[in-house]
Amino acid sequence: MNSPKFAIVTGASTGIGFELAHLAAQHGYDLLVAADESLIDAAATDFRRHGVEVRSIVADLATLEGVDQLLAATNGRPVDLLCANAGKGLGHGFLDQRIADWRRVIDTNITGTLYLLQKLLKPMVDRDGGKILITGSIAGFIPGSFQAVYNGSKAFIDSFADTIRNEIKEAKGVTITTLMPGPTETEFFDRAQMEDTSVGTQKKDDPAKVAQDGWDALMAGKTHVISGWKNKLQAAVAHVTPAAILVEQHRKMAEPGSGEEQ
């Protein structure tokens, strides 16, 4: 082993997860990185230039079997840091979505994430040491027309992180930080079939900056961080704005075809 520190980063093939894995490697963490695509192996090669041990695995983290596959790849090595970043979006109206598609959003964003957290949090609490960064979203504050399942899944994750943080508060050596980005320049909108929407075509945040904000908050032991001043403002406004207004505003951003008006 090259380092006494060991981190797992999920959804690390591109975007925020890719940048988080770079940060962990730069700070001397050996890595186990995972994604549901073979591009993760090329990403791992990039992470190795920081001089740490890196192992990559292609696993479907929407399934319990995929999470078990990831856990088995640790070979029993204690995990000091987890960046639970794997997530999936889905655009268009709920009635137009296939059951398999919206179930996959829930299984990736909620079921697989919770299973991974439960498996890794327990040993962290038992030894009173460990750091977890969960990628939530400011979307969790906003009822999301044409992203109903995704926004609902992030509302769940944001709330769940706050709850579990309280449940384990006696374990002073374990911290859980929630990273809440806004729209970020990643493959998210392409994969969610939202390229023709207003939010899909607008200028978005730099994933490296978002990851750095999350990393800094994680290392400081903060409970959560909203990346970017515009997103901080949007989150603050969301707390005092009626849901009917919020959902109508979201409709203008996420309705299919809204990007053509730009």
Rank of each mutant, 00 (worst) to 15 (best):
A236S: 10
D216E: 12
S153V: 01
L179D: 01
L39V: 11
Q202D: 10
G51T: 14
I57E: 07
I226G: 01
I176V: 05
Q262A: 15
M124N: 06
S227W: 00
S38C: 07
T241L: 02
G76R: 02
A86I: 01
I110E: 01
R104L: 09
A208C: 07
T45A: 14
Q193L: 15
D41A: 11
G182L: 04
F18Q: 13
R104N: 13
A254F: 14
S227N: 05
A254L: 12
G87S: 01
K131P: 02
S159R: 10
T184I: 06
L95Q: 15
E260T: 15
S56P: 10
D96V: 11
T177S: 06
S258P: 05
I134A: 07
H27S: 13
K222H: 12
S227E: 02
T175P: 06
T186W: 00
T197P: 09
R49G: 09
A34Q: 04
Q97I: 11
G140T: 00
K203D: 13
Q26R: 15
R191I: 08
D128S: 12
I8M: 03
D205I: 03
K203Q: 14
P183E: 07
S137T: 06
A148H: 14
I110D: 02
A25G: 07
L71K: 09
A235I: 01
